[in-house]
């Protein structure tokens, strides 16, 4: 038993470190693919690492109106993302699943958002406030969607722990595949775009403060604190990709300790995350951002999909 805990902790730590290490690369790849679509060379896929290194060397400037919230938020952000990274299966199903289930995961991410929204308003800048209010509007629909979508998988597999969901799906194989899986997958993918401030919900590449959601809240951050916030956000994107990959299509993930299994697991997750990153880049290259007040339509659609997924599980 103690051995199990140690083993799980070891792999959880390893996976979390890998995710933090890889997340800037995934963002770099998305940017590169977008640049290709725009007939540009684009910056190197390692650019996010250089940016992090640069920002980490710099001092932070704080608004004189900012309270402890602004100072604490970067650490809360990186810490909550870090804890979630320990509980999400990446290349193996060995993770800290026994500590908390998917509800803890969703609400740790909500904690991150809650503080980011507060920090957006804390420094007293107008754009931060606008970003915060828009973020709350978006998340009020996205959060239940996300929960429902993962709940569908929990219903199918009979457990609410992310790593156990992966494990049972991966071990049982296609027998567990239901129509509900695909409905939930679609709903979760839209949530992934919305939660990570991608087009068509938000534009990560814009300089127009008046249109910003996520970036608006970060406008007042600089230096080390900005580095932490950016890194947390990038890792959050990778976390969502990992949940999408391992909860809905876990096949290939390592379920035992064999070297071969581990190798296949690593290759499988990298391939899946790359596919997701490519899909995101494709969508960003091929669509315009939606009008802010049309977003609820898209998000309610995704909520409806998630609801249908749960219902179809009982009906079919």
């Amino acid at each position: 038993m103690v051995q199990d805990v140690l083993l799980n902790s070891l792999f959880a730590a390893l996976q979390a470190v890998t995710m933090f290490a890889l997340s800037p690369l995934i963002i770099g790849i998305i940017r590169k693919v977008k640049a290709w679509f725009q007939s540009r060379k684009g910056s190197s896929i390692w650019q996010p690492y250089y940016d992090l290194a640069k920002l980490l060397r710099k001092d932070s400037t704080m608004s004189k109106d900012a309270s402890w919230i602004s100072r604490a938020t970067p650490y809360i952000a990186i810490a909550s993302v870090g804890v979630v990274a320990l509980m999400v299966p990446f290349f193996t199903t060995y993770s800290l699943g026994f500590v908390g289930d998917l509800i803890v995961v969703v609400y740790l991410l909500a904690l991150f958002r809650f503080f980011m929204v507060l920090a957006g308003m804390d420094a007293g800048s107008t754009f931060g406030g606008m970003g915060s209010s828009r973020e709350m509007m978006v998340s009020s629909i996205v959060e239940p969607t996300m929960l429902l979508a993962i709940f569908t998988m929990a219903l199918i597999t009979g457990t609410t722990t992310l790593s156990s969901i992966s494990y049972s799906l991966a071990v049982t194989g296609p027998d567990l595949v239901r129509p509900a899986l695909f409905l939930a997958l679609a709903a979760f993918f839209i949530s992934l775009l919305a939660e990570n401030a991608r087009v068509p919900v938000d534009n990560p590449a814009t300089h127009l403060e008046l249109t910003m959601i996520h970036e608006g809240m970060l406008l007042e951050y600089s230096g080390k604190q900005l580095a932490l916030m950016e890194w947390a956000s990038w890792t959050k994107f990778l976390l969502f990709s990992a949940i999408l990959a391992n909860v809905f299509f876990p096949w290939g993930i390592a379920t035992d300790l064999s070297a071969l299994g581990m190798a296949v697991g690593v290759i499988a997750i990298i391939a899946k995350v790359l596919v997701i990153a490519l899909a995101v880049a494709l969508i960003e290259s091929g669509t315009s951002k939606m009008r802010l007040f049309r977003l609820p339509n898209l998000l309610t659609e995704s909520f409806t999909l998630a609801l249908l997924a749960v219902m179809s599980f009982y009906i079919l």
Partner: peptide, 16 residues
């Protein structure tokens, strides 16, 4: 105009 709707691909066609 294309760029401000976050449609960078189209914008670059015109910028080229």
């Amino acid at each position: 105009i294309a760029l401000d709707t976050a449609f960078g691909t189209g914008a670059q066609m015109a910028y080229i």
